[in-house]
Design a protein around this nucleic acid. Structure first.
Length: 656
RNA sequence: GCCUCAGUAGCUCAGACUGGUAGAGCAUCUGAUUUGUAAUCAGACGGCCGGGGGUUCGAAUCCCUCCUGGGGCUCCA
């Protein structure tokens, strides 16, 4: 019997009999309650049953670590499949991966509803109580194919990922067995803290020409607290929902008579949108942009020229037949801006030329994807296109990354990262132009990003149809990632639109590169983000109601009117409530509209020409903070400064 | 578009499973009250129960269909 030396980390080296399982080693070193679900043997994830033959290094993978949760969720997906095939013998399991906050499993079966999820959960709990061992088995190719001969999806997976020469592993728990490379938790009792969350459909291989599958989502954590915490997070995100807050604050409405995905900006929302737009105009003027306005529709020929019709037609509203041709609503501004560029002969002295537009485009997004202001068919934005030489691209991109940083600073966004979005060379039909151009432009952008020195990730298949992009990705309250800003490099427009300029040598030069950029997403989406980010408690400069005046009794109506006038003269948005309701009632009524400040005016304030400032808006942790006896003149001057500086915090009441 | 859940007063929601005269709170309006920091009292107004069709003596309720909204349809053994 030979012995092996196992490096168990801080505990040093231990000697064991060769052939011992890694689970036993972990039990020996870390005890029963270690919280380990699997192990890292020489850096490779292994089941507890993995046997050690030689000297090696062993580390436990804890259930609440990132890798541990991944294994837990993967195992929970198997448990789900076990319950589903037992309850629905005809169901064919396909794939069941762990995902960021849980897992899912896709089945080829008849659709099921929410009630069925509870039945499945019960069955899963039975198997957890039975505490099945989860056993790994190695099979050769032939036995593997024999075992799954009734499941064409598993066979297809083998054809693609395993082939015909080698075998692979399966995992068995009770009567259930699934093709899987593992690793898994040792027994089903580790999967106690799970919950099935929803069901939906997905296509096999995300291909809508293939079979439609039933997808079941769930979440799974190592501990009760983990599960509770996630449920709390979901609940918290619900409170931040812009659709709910948007309704309370009367920011926007959507009416069936107008159409889905076509929001109406109500006065309060319009204020926020205009403030953002004014800020953008100011910023972009300082960055050397010139503004234009182009029509919302144009002839078919324009969109054929731009490449929209061959590559983007599905996302455009259907054509309108007119006596002089076929018209389309614009889905993007770029083709018209290209024509602006071409409107006169350009010299190298004109470059870079930055053309901006504050307008609205219309896109026929799939009806099922529409959601409040977050996904709409009417997109208002501060759009712009930069026309420059290849040499100038780096500087322009850098300026744009800088601009995005400026904006995010003002809006207080911290939870974001850059993403280089590349094309998918396997799906060339989705994109225009030749592969050499894609490769060189992508490399160019990558170099620029490296040179700027900001961290970024790369994503294949996320490019625009006309070129690669730098996207700024934002993480929402629910932990989901959304694109917020985008900087896109277009190498195809110059040929399609014949863009050119007279260069320093007096030659007509056609090497005009176009940068498409939208640093603030669309106004619709951006306001949705802002609303969620601040729970509707906007900084003063963005607040639809900056000051809500509340009188103690109707005796102060006259003074309230004076306060209103002083504030309005300073350009402050103010609203007065001098009704005969009690003070408590009035505060309660107005907090839902989330004014930046409430001003309480009573006899004392009137006598001394002062105001009593209060913060009270739904969802604000500073609620109830107040500041009495502030001279009216001082309040007006201070709030004017706070608004003009676009301050993020309410500074008129010192933070306690 | 596809799957799933839902739609009742301006808002938030009962009633539906088991068919029998549509309910509550808030908001609004009218009185009373004149208020000191998260709900003063009383009364009134307010509904094609999302639309259409069906079953039934009778439908908010059961069935079909359409519309609108929420969630999902990106994560690959």
């Amino acid at each position: 019997m030979s012995m092996i030396a196992v490096n168990v980390g801080v505990e040093g080296h231990h000697e064991y009999v060769s052939g011992i399982s890694v689970g036993e080693v972990i039990l020996n070193v870390h005890g029963k309650k270690s919280g380990a679900v699997a192990a890292l043997v020489d850096g490779i994830e292994r089941d507890f049953s993995f046997t050690l033959q030689d000297d090696c290094k062993v580390e436990p993978i804890l259930g609440d670590s990132k890798a541990g949760l991944y294994i837990l969720r993967h195992s929970c997906a198997h448990l789900l499949a076990q319950a589903v095939v037992e309850l629905y013998p005809d169901a064919k399991p396909t794939i069941g991966p762990p995902i960021d906050h849980g897992f899912y499993y896709d089945f080829y079966m008849d659709p099921i509803g929410e009630d069925d999820l509870r039945t499945i959960e019960k069955k899963m709990n039975e198997h957890i109580r039975a505490n099945h061992k989860i056993i790994r088995e190695e099979l050769d190719n032939k036995s593997l194919r024999e075992m799954f001969r009734d499941n064409k999806f598993k066979i297809e997976i083998m054809d693609e990922k395993i082939g015909y020469d080698v075998g692979s592993s399966v995992y068995r728990q009770g009567d259930f067995v699934d093709l899987c490379r593992g690793p898994h938790v040792p027994t089903t009792k580790h999967l106690m803290w799970f919950k099935l969350t929803s069901t939906s459909t997905a296509y096999w291989k995300a291909d809508n020409k293939r079979e439609s599958l039933v997808r079941i989502y769930g979440m799974c954590y190592a501990t009760k607290e983990g599960l509770k915490e996630r449920q709390r997070q979901i609940e918290e995100a619900g409170k931040r929902d812009h659709k709910k807050i948007g309704k309370e604050m009367e920011l926007y409405m959507i009416d069936e008579m107008i159409g889905k995905g076509l929001p109406v900006w109500l006065p309060n929302g319009e204020i926020i949108k205009s403030e953002i737009e004014n800020y953008a105009i100011e910023t972009e003027e300082s960055y050397g942009y010139q503004r234009v306005t182009t029509p919302v529709l144009a002839k078919q020929q324009l969109f054929e020229c731009s490449g929209h019709l061959p590559h983007y037609a599905d996302s455009m509203y259907p054509p309108m037949e007119m006596d002089d041709g076929t018209y389309y609503l614009k889905a993007m501004n770029c083709p018209m801006h290209h024509l602006v560029f071409n409107n006169k002969k350009r010299s190298y002295r004109d470059l870079p030329l930055r053309i901006a537009e504050y307008g609205t485009v219309y896109r026929n997004e799939l009806s099922g994807t529409l959601s409040g202001l977050l996904r709409v068919r009417m997109l208002s934005m501060n759009d712009a296109h930069i026309y420059c030489t290849l040499d100038q691209v780096a500087k322009e991109v850098r300026a744009n990354v800088q601009m995005v940083n400026d904006y995010y600073q003002t809006f207080g966004f911290e939870n974001f990262h850059l993403r280089l979005s590349l094309w998918d060379p396997k799906k060339t039909e989705k994109y225009i132009d030749q592969s050499e151009n894609w490769e060189t432009t992508q490399n160019h952008l990558r170099e620029i990003l490296k040179d700027i020195g900001v961290p970024f990730v790369e994503a294949v298949g996320e490019a625009a149809f006309y070129g690669p992009k730098i996207d700024i990705q934002f993480t929402t309250a629910l932990g989901r990632e959304e694109s917020m800003s985008t900087i896109q490099l277009d190498f195809a427009a110059k040929d399609r639109f014949g863009l050119s300029y007279k260069d320093e040598n007096g030659k007509e030069n056609g090497e005009v590169f176009v940068i498409h950029r939208a640093p603030l997403s669309t106004h619709e989406r951006f306001v949705a983000f802002l609303t969620e980010h601040w729970v509707g408690c906007f900084p003063t400069w963005l607040s639809p109601i900056q000051v809500q005046v509340i009188t103690i009794s109707e005796k102060q109506s006259e003074y309230a009117e004076k306060v209103r006038l002083s504030l309005e003269r300073a350009g402050v948005r103010v609203s007065v409530d001098d009704s005969d309701a009690t003070i408590g009632k009035k505060i309660r009524m107005h907090r839902k509209m989330r004014p930046a400040y409430m001003l309480i005016l009573g006899e004392d304030e009137e006598n001394n020409q002062t105001v009593s400032i209060r913060i009270d808006r739904k969802g604000d942790p500073r609620n109830g903070e107040q500041c009495k006896d502030v001279p009216l003149e001082q309040f007006v001057a201070d709030i004017f400064a706070e608004i003009t500086n676009r301050q993020k915090e309410l500074s008129l009441i010192p933070k306690s």
